[in-house]
Design a protein around this nucleic acid. Sequence first.
DNA 1: GGATTGAATGTAAGCGCTTACACTAAACGT
DNA 2: ACGTTTAGTGTAAGCGCTTACATTCAATCC
Lengths: 342, 342
Amino acid sequence: MNNQPSVPTLDDVARSAGVSTATVSRCLNSPERVVEKTRKRVMRAVEELGYTPNFGARVMAAKRTFTIGAIIPTMENAIFARGLQAFQEALHARGYTLLVASSAYQPKIEEEQIKALVARGADGLLLIGQDRDPAVYDYLRARSVPVLSAWVYMAGGDQPTVGFDNRRSMRALAQQVIDFGHRRIGMISGITQGNDRAAERVAGLRDAMHDNGLDADQVPIIETPYEIENGAVAFQSLMDAPSPPSVVMCGNDVLAVGALRGAREMGLSVPEDVSITGFDDIELARIVTPQITTVHVPHREMGRKAAEALIDMVEKRSAGASVELTASLQIRDSLKDLRAKP
Amino acid sequence: MNNQPSVPTLDDVARSAGVSTATVSRCLNSPERVVEKTRKRVMRAVEELGYTPNFGARVMAAKRTFTIGAIIPTMENAIFARGLQAFQEALHARGYTLLVASSAYQPKIEEEQIKALVARGADGLLLIGQDRDPAVYDYLRARSVPVLSAWVYMAGGDQPTVGFDNRRSMRALAQQVIDFGHRRIGMISGITQGNDRAAERVAGLRDAMHDNGLDADQVPIIETPYEIENGAVAFQSLMDAPSPPSVVMCGNDVLAVGALRGAREMGLSVPEDVSITGFDDIELARIVTPQITTVHVPHREMGRKAAEALIDMVEKRSAGASVELTASLQIRDSLKDLRAKP
DNA sequence: GGATTGAATGTAAGCGCTTACACTAAACGT
DNA sequence: ACGTTTAGTGTAAGCGCTTACATTCAATCC
């Protein structure tokens, strides 16, 4: 007796329905090409046997998987969660399955994951940001796997992008901060190495300083991985300086929340003693007290548009067009207007 | 001229290295069985051609993928993030790749995702909770795909579990609440339908009421999806009752944070006017003010242990043993001790 | 009524890989 | 010196599916 629970194959279905494997395959993939009577018989056999197509075999024969892969730097905090959820929903609506992997912000791991996903037959890939080893893009091109970069917008590049201009957005926020009368500005940034979003945000702050005739080079900037605790530590070291900043601008909301905690631990109150700003406008920013002034990123819209663009690339084999979204300022309590009368 | 960038295959490598495909395959899968000289030659050819094995073909021929699938209810909030991250790290260390999909708490979608992952050759599956259509387990058994349920611990069941006893944990928390002198208890729970964790937590509260001779049936319980906004709404409707509770126990931290916001909007201060408790001890719980009293779940340990157990099942084809972890109380500011002198 | 057409179905050739088995030649034992 | 072993490699049979092409047969046309 064979107790290996053996999985039914196309052959089994064909035999049980009394047709050829080709007919079964057609029933499943282009039902309109087979006459109703046969189709019903086949479908019944499929039901009875509990048949599910073998994916590997299908991929090998058909070269299409209806699978999209996404690699995000981290799942630990909510930065990418909302956008990814929207991305997934949009894909699902179009009949695609999303597979997610995370890279822990490490290029090496990201490359591994890219290969894993491509090997598994991903029809297209969503990556975060654009700044990576050109060899990666060569690899993808050689296999003609479409890639889309999200969370950034870069018009000129080789790769299509769906996102917003990180630099311009941070510049706008910084302009607002300066308009509010702040001159001593400090920054806590994510690690800029290999992270174009982080780098652009720093550049945006520098731009704004220039625009207002301030010396961008003397802004104290601390780079640290995106984690709350790191934000707290960086904040305290910024505030320990001889002439501490009146505002600490953070590379994202996670760091800003950390900064807020740091302030509390030091007994400083926000925004009375020091202002704090964030970036991304994730839920966190409105949960803490005071609520954090930040740049609102249209996460859901970005996810949705990215899905559309990527499917377009996959199905039409087109080069793909970049989509620019607008990120807007969200002025909340954590930023003090120094010009206002008390 | 052929401008289809054609992907190199095993054959190409074999030809280029002047060996047979079998040798190339062996170089890749069990290098010790090939003499060094040949191996080097082959590896060079692999490098030069930029060869990556075709996954579908490999699966079909070898029936192993070194891929583990996980399906979590949601990526939108951080409930599963930390545990999943640890799970992924542990898998990675053992040479496995993790593929994640989310079900939006919908059994139908979960089933689809399970099929998608199995079809894609997942060697094993991690699911959250245990409460699902038996047909799902039959399907998995028929294909001999090992499944492990996490975030719950149930000794008796058919499936191995790695997690903690949700019911007992909530009972302990409720006991503490009662010991602090609270008698009018309200609860905001997640949707218990199809979510055993949520159901067990409610049961745990009931247990504690019983233990203390209180009437469990008159506890007002509102069920609502795990979202901050829902927590706020539910809280307000609980507090609008003629004799509002002195403590609102929430099914998780997300709802608790929502409740906190609800309180703030109503002008109630926590814990002076009303106490709030959560569950899970995600980062959120310590970020808000006041910090939330909750049940600490050892997420990372759970992820790690789950990875070990699942790999064990996959490799040894064993039935898999359940692992029970301990969840501990985290008493923080959001819970007031009514016995304490002011 | 026979030729033509076209819809429905069948036949069979791969897709790229792994691996049981076959083969070769060098190393060993007696 | 000659069988026997063994390590290294090659041969070829699938794995389960899709699809180009072949076949069948009934409907249609002149």
